[in-house]
């Protein structure tokens, strides 16, 4: 789309008709040149000069009005996915995988998750990514975007110390809601990074089931297991307490399996395992996606000015070659001696 910085300058365009009516070179009162044969060069000059004048004036007017091609987004087919990253902001994420406050050499769970997510996103240039966080309440951090700088800034900002509790259910609901912004072509995935879970209220469970059917997302749960915590994949020894209250993670896993969507859980007990899990998600979520690419604004005025300079150059050349008409007078009949 073309647009102008100063569109009102275009009102001066009629001046470009000036050369069609008025001559650039001088005219003289001379007797009957028409009897001379018409030569091609003269005709070329005769027609060329008004055209050069027209081009010079009109392109100068266009140049001053400042034409530019609007930037914006162009559709683009890439390899990637619509991704919503759902990050746990509960305060336990600030602990290390060993469940302690991290000291010098250790990395907290949230720092490890951030670092690995940054690498992951840097390696997937075509993804549309949205970021959500949850604690006691779900937070929409960044709506789906292709801007890498915004995504990086949003993930970096999660370095702030955590909030309070963990309400996974509403967080998941928000992440699935954010999928409404996704493109129709391309896979849709929610990657949840959390180190714990909580009981999901029955009404939120119902809402999640409906949303999952409606949105058809692929769900990945990256469970950052603290040392000593029980695995989400096994029920434990017979006779051990196994209810939603005592083992919310296990029961969240079971609930997510029943959602009727593609779901996969990864259990990571250290940064290396997180890296492996993320790599695997990356492999599974690389499919063709119709996304968009931003193009910057492009100024076009220099083209107009160059054209005007060329036309004005022709006009100048014509003036330079112009010679005043001076007919040869008949020699006087008598000379003064």
């Amino acid at each position: 789309m073309m647009a102008f910085f100063h569109p009102y300058v275009l009102f001066a365009l009629p001046f470009a008709l000036l050369p069609l009516g008025l001559r650039w070179l001088r005219s003289f009162d001379v007797p009957r040149l028409g009897s001379r044969p018409v030569d091609a060069r003269s005709r070329l000059i005769d027609r060329g000069l008004p055209i050069a004048g027209f081009i010079a004036i009109s392109s100068l007017v266009l140049g001053v009005s400042g034409p530019y091609l609007k930037g914006g987004s162009v559709p683009y087919r890439g390899q990637g996915s619509n991704l919503v990253v759902l990050i746990d902001r509960s305060s336990s994420m600030d602990d290390s995988f060993a469940g302690r406050t991290p000291d010098g050499g250790e990395e907290s769970k949230s720092a490890a998750a951030r670092r690995i997510l940054q690498d992951f996103i840097a390696g997937r240039p075509d993804d549309r990514i949205g970021i959500a966080a949850f604690s006691t309440a779900p937070l929409q951090v960044l709506p789906m975007t292709t801007s890498r700088s915004a995504i990086r800034a949003a993930i970096d900002a999660q370095a702030e110390r955590g909030l309070s509790q963990t309400d996974v259910g509403r967080g998941l609901a928000l992440a699935m809601e954010m999928m409404r912004d996704s493109t129709t072509v391309g896979s849709r995935a929610v990657v949840m990074v959390s180190d714990g879970a909580a009981v999901i209220a029955p009404d939120v469970q119902k809402q999640l089931r409906e949303l999952a059917l409606e949105q058809q997302v692929n769900l990945y749960w990256l469970y950052l297991r603290t040392e000593g915590a029980k695995s989400i994949f096994d029920d434990g020894a017979p006779g051990e307490a196994n209810t939603a209250q005592t083992r919310p993670e296990r029961h969240l896993h079971l609930f997510l399996q029943r959602l009727g969507i593609t779901y996969r859980a990864f259990e990571a007990e250290g940064p290396e395992a997180v890296q492996q899990a993320i790599d695997e998600i990356g492999k599974m979520e690389t499919r063709p996606i119709l996304t968009e690419r931003m193009i910057p604004r492009r100024d076009l005025d220099w083209i107009c000015y160059l054209l005007a300079a060329a036309a004005a150059g022709i006009l100048t050349l014509a003036r330079w070659l112009e010679r005043p008409y001076a007919p040869v007078m008949p020699a006087p009949l008598m000379r003064r001696s």
């Binding site: 070179l25 005219s27 003289f28 001379v30 040149l33 028409g34 005769d46 014509a318 112009e322 001076a326």
Partner: peptide, 28 residues
């Protein structure tokens, strides 16, 4: 006084007008 001018313009007289009805030529 203008002998020089006459000489020059005689040479450049070549490119001139074309319309029969118009006796006003264009000189280059």
């Amino acid at each position: 006084r203008h002998i020089g001018v006459v000489g020059k313009s005689a040479r450049s007289y070549a490119a001139t007008g074309r319309r029969d009805s118009d006796n006003r030529g264009r000189a280059l």
